[in-house]
Amino acid sequence: MKCKMNRNAAKVLKGWLESDGAEGKMVRVYVTEMHGNHAHYDVMLDTPTEHDEIVKTDKDIDVLLDAREDFLDGVWIQYFFVPQEGFAISNKSKGLPPQHH
């Protein structure tokens, strides 16, 4: 499986990973809603399960992706400060443009 992120997302996620209570946790991208040919995504800190693939990114952050979920393969995690601050997670190989969170 593959996962990419922009520099802003890496900076925010590294902050999450360095915060109190994050010890032993990793970044997880997950599907929040399915709509036939596309999905909506979100991100959180979590611990690995037996179904996860640990995907290395070029930003030195490993990401947990549930290997059973095809819509997660190829996700692109972005973080924007304008027009509103938040994550935009998309998968160009699976349909719609990014959804802001």
Rank of each mutant, 00 (worst) to 15 (best):
T57D: 02
N37E: 09
H35A: 10
Q84Y: 12
G15T: 10
H38M: 04
V31K: 06
K56G: 03
P48I: 01
G86M: 03
G15A: 09
F87Y: 14
A67K: 15
E23D: 13
R28N: 07
G95Q: 07
K59N: 02
D46Q: 05
D70Y: 13
L13P: 12
R7E: 08
H38W: 14
H38K: 07
G86E: 02
L13I: 14
K4R: 13
H51L: 15
A67C: 08
K59M: 12
T49R: 14
D46M: 02
G24M: 08
K92A: 10
Y41T: 07
P98I: 00
G24E: 03
E50R: 06
H100F: 13
Q84C: 03
A9M: 03
I77L: 12
H51A: 15
D66A: 09
N37L: 09
E85Y: 01
G86T: 03
T47D: 04
L45C: 06
G21I: 11
T47G: 09
V63Q: 05
D20P: 04
E33S: 09
K94P: 01
H100C: 06
M5K: 06
L13N: 11
G24K: 09
A10G: 08
Y30L: 14
F81L: 10
L17E: 06
K56V: 12
I89V: 13
I89C: 03
M1Y: 02
G21W: 11
M34C: 12
A39F: 11
N37P: 01
G24L: 11
W76C: 10
E69W: 01
D58M: 02
S19W: 01
R7N: 05
E18W: 02
D46K: 10
E69H: 01
E53Y: 08
L45A: 10
G74R: 13
H101I: 11
D70I: 10
A39C: 15
V27D: 06
H38A: 04
T47V: 15
Y41I: 11
A39E: 10
Y30P: 01
K11R: 14
T32F: 08
E23A: 14
D20F: 04
D73E: 08
D42H: 06
K11S: 11
H101K: 11
T47F: 05
W16L: 12
V63L: 03
A10R: 11
T49V: 06
V29M: 10
P98M: 04
N91Q: 07
A88D: 06
I54K: 14
I61Y: 06
P98F: 13
S19P: 01
L45F: 09
K94I: 07
I54Y: 01
D42V: 02
F81V: 13
G74Y: 13
S93T: 10
D66T: 05
P48M: 05
K59T: 01
V43L: 01
I54D: 00
V55H: 05
D73W: 02
E85T: 14
N6I: 04
S90R: 05
E23M: 00
L96D: 02
A22C: 03
